[in-house]
Design a protein around this nucleic acid. Sequence first.
DNA 1: AAGTCTTCGTA
DNA 2: GTACGAAGACTTC
Length: 976
Amino acid sequence: MSSTSPLKPGDHLYLIDGSGYIFRAYHALPPLTRKSDGLPVGAVQGFCNMLWKLLKETKAGEKPTHLAVIFDHSSKSFRNDIYPQYKAQRPEPPADLRPQFGLIRQATRAFNVACVEQANYEADDLIATYARQAVEAGATCRIVSSDKDLMQLIRPGVALYDTMKDREVGEPEVLEKFGVTPDKVVDIQALAGDSVDNVPGVPGIGVKTAAQLITEYGDLETLLARAPEIKQQKRRENLIEFAEQARISKKLVVLDDHVPVEHDVSGFAVDNPKASQLIGFTKALEFTSFTKKVAGELDADSTAIEPIPVEVKFWPPEGGEGVPLPPPRFAAKKAEPAAEAQAATADVPPSSADAALLAIPVTHADYETVTTLASLEAWCAAAYEKGYLALDTETDSLDSMRANLVGVSLATAPGRACYIPLQHKASGGGLFGGELVEGQVPLDQAIAVLKRVLEDPSILKIGQNLKYDIEVLKRHGIAVAPIDDTMLISYVLESGDVGHGMDELSLRHLNHKCIAFKDVAGSGKSMITFDRVPVADATRYAAEDADITLRLWLLLKPRLAAQGKLAVYETLERPLIAVLAAMEMEGILIDPELLRRLSNDLATACAGIETHVYELAGERFNIGSPKQLGDILFGRMGLPGGRKTATGAWSTDSDALEDLAGQGIELARRVLDWRQLSKLRSTYTDALPNYINPETKRVHTSYSLAATSTGRLASTDPNLQNIPVRTEEGRKIRSAFIAPEGSKLVSADYSQIELRVVAHVADIAQLKKAFAEGQDIHAMTASEMFNVPVEGMDPMVRRRAKAINFGIIYGISAFGLANQLGIGREEAGEYIRTYFKRFPGIRDYMEATKQEARDKGYVETIFGRRMHFPRIKSPNPSERAFLERAAINAPIQGAAADIIRRAMIRMPDALSEAGLSARMLLQVHDELIFECVDAEAETTMAVVKKIMVSAPDPVVKLSVPLQVDARAAQNWEAAH
DNA sequence: AAGTCTTCGTA
DNA sequence: GTACGAAGACTTC
């Protein structure tokens, strides 16, 4: 421990938030630093550097006279007595972080610095208490932390220093973050709450609204007292209803500055480190260069000092998929050559030199606007030196099949980025508008230079959502390869309730807020296309995108190997980019004339129903308005049995209307009919023709690879994964998706793939046997459950079993099953009990999955795809039950998604190797749609089936056969 | 103009 | 009971 001396006027007390430091260092720094045995020590090393700098390099007059590092004693504190859910759903720290908690405490002692923690109090409370003591003693205090919860302590004599951003946090920074002065910060937090710490706050109020309210009313109590004056209805009601919750929230966020501290501040007086202790410690952790630096400064002979024993807890981590190894120098050898076409040699690992540069702040100072061919060549040369290149294209449209290339940005190192404007046009109309801006490299020349590097197999191209850029560049004759995509890397690492957009990733991982697109191009009606953005603005925006993308790659790529997820990325994600790009660019043919006729028919039918509805209702109203309809049905007509929606409005969904229709209310039946027809018209027959590309005359959807939590794809603009099929009217729309003359559409779909996955992963003998023998799976289930023969089975009995089988996949509940079958909850519960009695393995599997989600915070598919459920331990019972069902469904839906991904990745090569010209056009979760010439239809179906059926091989040997049904026809409806 | 709610299409 | 996206109505700024 350090020496002893009471605080006196003029003294400087430094309080370091040790727990906060380690969390932020872990998440902000690349996990590259490990001891030779694999022990992760990056945060400890960062901590030592920071502490050393504080002790040695602080300016004269700011040197601390007293210093202590404060830690959280445990995850429980007095706040849990006020509000048990406080910080209740914090996930366990990552395995490679856990051992570093103890190491940082040992580092503190090795520095001969006070190391303080106290049961029942958080570090922040101790810091608040010591800071108050300092001010009262006439000394000043400086708190070293990046925690926003400490902003409330800022006042004359108490400063806050953010180590991660390397800057002082003063009133301006607090104003920027919370919109109020430091003394009001707690009122903001009380209103806005904090989802990370589970501070509830008031619903509907975020930081922005809270700041506005506190500025207007002065403080929380005044606001709550005068809440009835507030104009906005919802806001007023919430402030009144949740007033007590706001007060509790405030108690949670206000720090206790009168902790009966066990360590007296006089014991924090600064003393010099003992060379033997400090160097002994840094040698033990193999901090070579740090040891050298310290030895030099302390004038000690480091070779003469023995490493001291260091106590390591929680390492290696127990169980799991094994010890996360240091990131390999080169990507792991691909396990499946066929699955990953990309050469491993092109997969350059992030250099540690660049990784170190990640810490430099994102400024736009060194961004360059490339205006000459020579300078473009120089940037390409830099890419050759590095072996990798981050890039981003700027265009005038979100639709990659219509977008014109406006410019390209490149980055070769953190902070080293450029923008090459290619097709910027002068702003303004008339004579001077629309002309190409001076000083741009001619498009064809720039393309020629870029083509060399973007197609070079030795240069790895890094992008964020590269599929878009690949398509735009392909249309300019460039076939970009090999590639890495930061969006997909993030998706593999963190699929769960976080997003993977670049702005979001930048904030989360780099603590940097990107320039928003609307800041350079505006929004809404006044939005300009990117080619009209001034080149200087465009450079800052575009070069930043490439810079951030490169930094994210440097940070995130090593985590794939560290978490054992490189194979998932390389076999299920990355190779799908090119496959999807080809499908999207191919597009599908639709018959706009047929859709136009359908639209007319639907319009006529709707109009007829409308007249009738107005008669029945006795007034004209907007049938499409649930609010107006509810008022008429349950208000004016006073019909019984109305339910309310979450927001208190009358529910008029199809269940509610079916109820009324069943009671003989014709109005309800008519509205249901109207809704069906009007839906088909607005969403399909009217919308689809607008998506026909004028050049290709086909419709090109866009698939999102990182939109779902389970690994499924999502289709947008237009969504071609929800084309109607269930009703006769709807199927007419499907028949408007056609093959050209002389060609056919082939549809191939997996039969019962999710139930087959269940049979395999839960290892259910009866199910496996039934699938192996090609039995009717629902009939078999019914037979097992109700002891009736399959022969001559009552269709109703089979229907119940079928509903239960689907329920299993969805994480069954009596409530849901009762709804589905239109029976009572009791009866549904009885079915479920019967089912579990006959299939106990299913119940075991479901319980085990829930437990896994609770223990680890995630679940995995049989192919290793990981899906996170950070809120699975939510204190809210209905949220928790929902997440448990989702966690049960995820490995099943996810495995099915993995299987069809594997089939899709192998499909193009398989088709061409078979000498077929068939092209894959669409994916609808368990179905693939192809277009092929008439003569090749049969062979195409055979090849497609073979690839789809064998898709799990060789990684997973399914214990159940997969079945694929395929048909060829002139249109999708007939092929399906 | 932007964001939320409700409804409904798919697997 | 799972997973999505789109359209129209409605609310708020």
